[in-house]
Simulated assay, not measured.
Amino acid sequence: MGDAKTHEKVVNGQLWNITEIKWALFPSKTGEIKIPSASLTADVVVKNDFNERSFFNTPFFDQLATTKRQVFNTEQLTINVKPLPEENKPAGFSNLVGTFNVNVGLSSNEVKVGDSTTLTVTIKGNGNIRDIPFPHLPQSQEYKLYEDEPTVKINTNANGLEGSKTFTTAIVPLKKGTITIPAISISSFDPKENKYTNLSTSSITLKVLPSDNPMNGTINSYSVDKQGVKILGKDISPIFSNESALANNSISPVIKIIFIILSIIPVIGFIISVFYYKYLSKISSDSGFIRRSKAMKKAVQKIKTLKQDTEFYNNASLLLREFIGDKINIDGRALTSMDIKTKLTVFKLNNDLINNIIRFLSECDAGLYGGKILSNENYSMLIENLNKLINRIDKEIK
């Protein structure tokens, strides 16, 4: 109940600092209720145990005293909560206990249809202020109600809690005339008088005037003369008054083509990105993919550099073996005819193709080591056979 209060008090010749903290308790059930003990942890000054006649038993050396942490507990309290009397208990009693009074008022006793006035109900007194229920007004065909959140103000005094709770309700009348706001009644139990009391207000009369808006109020009828649609002005563009004005507003063919191209570009970009993603995935998962994809172009370029000279047989044989190595992702320069047959069989190449490869390499070896003269006819035939071999190998091994 409010802030803690501190004061001094002399007990048995010793000065004490006292702090008082008060709570307001509102029991929610009857019978014996035990309030548990409160505890306080504090550092207590412990003086040094000097002889009374000792030189050290002086105020100066009292400053050298030590502290000791201790826990202090209050006694447990027991209270007996009596039940509220059943005799003369009002119907709908909400367990409101205390001494209260009620005030009510309207912000305006005269309004127009559709406007609002505010009904304010303030209940003051001592007791469990927060538990005061909302004094609802009955619904009516004459008005609409809009309730707001109540506001609470609480102070403390010697008798406990004192304060007020204010309820506001906006009332919007629906028709003109006189409206009677019914009386508000709240029941409570007064512990001082030991009896139930009924807090009641008088009814309030609200005068409702016709609204300035013809759509509101109790206007019986009104008529509107039917008129044709008129063109009031042509100062707002582009508003057209006939269909012919729209005839020449077609989009030009160039704009259409540009629009189509711009619409297709994202689709093409998406397709390219998909294929590029697959390409990158292929590269990352297959270390020989780049070698295989570039092998054909590399071999074709080297064939163009083959000259009809003494190095032709060696260069042609090396070119074919390197091409095969690139296609199967190994070093092809040291491949023998037996190695080629073994490796290419794994890739399920046609036996005729494998035999033609071995035959071409054997012919190159014969020309290189047998001193065979390379005639024009033989040169052209070997170049043609080499092109056929690398084309067939490229088709078989992807």
Rank of each mutant, 00 (worst) to 15 (best):
G2K: 09
A4S: 14
A4C: 04
K5I: 15
K9R: 13
V11Q: 06
N12Y: 08
K22N: 10
K22E: 12
W23N: 06
T30L: 03
T30A: 15
I33E: 12
K34D: 08
K34E: 14
K34S: 11
I35K: 00
S37G: 13
S39Q: 05
A42W: 02
V44L: 03
V45P: 05
N48G: 07
E52I: 09
R53K: 12
D62P: 00
L64D: 07
A65N: 02
A65I: 02
R69E: 14
V71R: 05
T74D: 08
E75M: 13
T78S: 13
T78Y: 06
T78E: 12
I79H: 04
V81C: 12
K82M: 11
N95G: 07
N95V: 01
V97M: 09
G98M: 14
N101I: 01
V102R: 15
G105W: 04
S107L: 02
N109Q: 01
S116R: 14
T118L: 03
T118G: 01
T118H: 00
T118K: 00
G125E: 14
P133Y: 09
P133N: 12
P135S: 10
H136E: 13
H136I: 04
L137P: 07
P138L: 14
Q139V: 09
K144C: 05
K144P: 01
Y146L: 14
E147L: 10
P150E: 05
K153R: 02
I154W: 05
A158V: 04
N159S: 14
G160Y: 02
L161F: 12
E162Y: 02
F167T: 06
I171G: 03
P173H: 04
S188R: 10
D190A: 01
K192A: 14
L199V: 00
T201I: 11
S202F: 06
S203V: 04
M215D: 07
N216S: 10
Y222G: 00
Y222E: 06
Y222M: 10
D225V: 02
V229D: 05
I231P: 04
L232M: 12
K234M: 11
K234Y: 08
I239K: 11
A245Q: 13
L246C: 07
L246R: 03
A247N: 13
N248A: 15
S250A: 15
I251P: 00
I251C: 09
P253L: 13
I258M: 15
F270Y: 08
F270V: 04
F275N: 09
I283R: 09
S285D: 08
F289V: 14
F289P: 08
Q301K: 11
Q301S: 15
K304D: 12
T305W: 00
K307I: 03
T310I: 15
F312V: 11
F312Q: 03
L319C: 09
I328T: 04
N329G: 02
I330S: 09
G332D: 06
G332F: 09
R333I: 07
A334Q: 12
T336N: 11
D339F: 06
I340C: 02
T345V: 02
K348A: 05
L353H: 04
I354W: 06
I354G: 11
I357R: 03
R359F: 09
L361E: 11
C364H: 00
E377C: 05
L386Q: 12
K388A: 11
I393S: 03
K395W: 04
I397F: 00
